[in-house]
Design a protein around this nucleic acid. Structure first.
Ligand SMILES: [Mn+2]
Ligand SMILES: [Mn+2]
Ligand SMILES: [Zn+2]
Ligand SMILES: [Zn+2]
Lengths: 146, 146
DNA sequence: CAGGTAAGTGAAAAACGTTTTCATCTACAC
DNA sequence: GTGTAGATGAAAACGTTTTTCACTTACCTG
């Protein structure tokens, strides 16, 4: 189900929020990216088309959108907080070189079974997961031998 | 296998680190707690018996202990970073409530096959992984209905 | 289509949590 | 003991997030 303008307005209004150009712009940036974006990265991108926007508004908007369940917040290693659309078509994960920081994406993780078991055993409603492998990339393995 | 003073010294020295009273104190606080403790909480507790210690030392010590694999770092909702003893023998993972921050541990993740495939396809030498599920705990699901 | 008002915005400042810097100190090898 | 690489603490720098406040705007009502 695509998120039409109409639907978006109604979701917001249901909780007493208004649909402003700023909120539209922030949501659009997140929707068009398949990566996790930090508040700063979102700010940068939104400003390209919307130069007057304030960083404060980014934070406030992220809080509202997350509260409404339209986007979700992810905690990763480095910059800790980032956001992405709630149900992306195939989430994605990272293989990170612990030495040079190089990142490789992958998307097939096959955690469905584990997820179901954990949900059942603990009574959780699971919304997402964070999976990162850490290791040495080919280049750093070579330089480590030297 | 308990972590004796002797063993600890040897683990540290293997990498060129020294065993200082401050490091001993930080590790002790973490070992005696079954919770995840933030750097600030650790600082507070260590200071009770060790008033002169600086917060900087807490941060530096946490980085060293995590690098050595003696403790592990957790990213949860609110205060984001916290630490706890690494539970032998296997690694352990978290199921985190995105609303109240409650954390449930689990240890069986069965990622061996995926790990091997990623290593082969990308030439990485994989050293470890981070796996966290995010969702709503039973209590927060109830309060969400209201 | 006004007009009124609650909600939203942006600039600036404050509040955090974390890292860097640097002079001093100390654990440990010899 | 002595020398030295490694560790510490205070202060300052830093980047991120929140608060405050005067001003503006989306949206309801008539
Ligand atoms: Mn990615
Ligand atoms: Mn845990
Ligand atoms: Zn985090
Ligand atoms: Zn690398």
């Amino acid at each position: 189900m695509r998120l039409t303008e109409k639907k978006l307005t109604s979701i917001l209004r249901q909780r007493g929020y208004r649909l402003t150009p700023q909120r539209r712009a922030v949501l659009k940036v997140i929707a068009l990216s398949s990566d996790h974006l930090t508040p700063a990265a979102i700010y940068e991108r939104v400003r390209r088309k919307h130069p007057g926007i304030g960083l404060v508004t980014i934070y406030r908007t992220l809080a509202v959108l997350a509260e409404l369940g339209l986007i979700c917040e992810v905690h990763a290693g480095g910059s800790c907080r980032s956001y992405l659309m709630r149900k992306p078509p195939g989430h994605h994960h990272h293989l990170i070189c612990s030495q040079c920081g190089r990142v490789v994406d992958f998307s097939d993780c096959d955690l469905g079974g584990l997820e179901q078991r954990l949900a059942r055993e603990n009574g959780f409603k699971i919304e997402g997961h964070l999976l990162e492998f850490l290791g040495l990339c080919p280049a750093c393995q070579k330089s480590a031998q030297a």
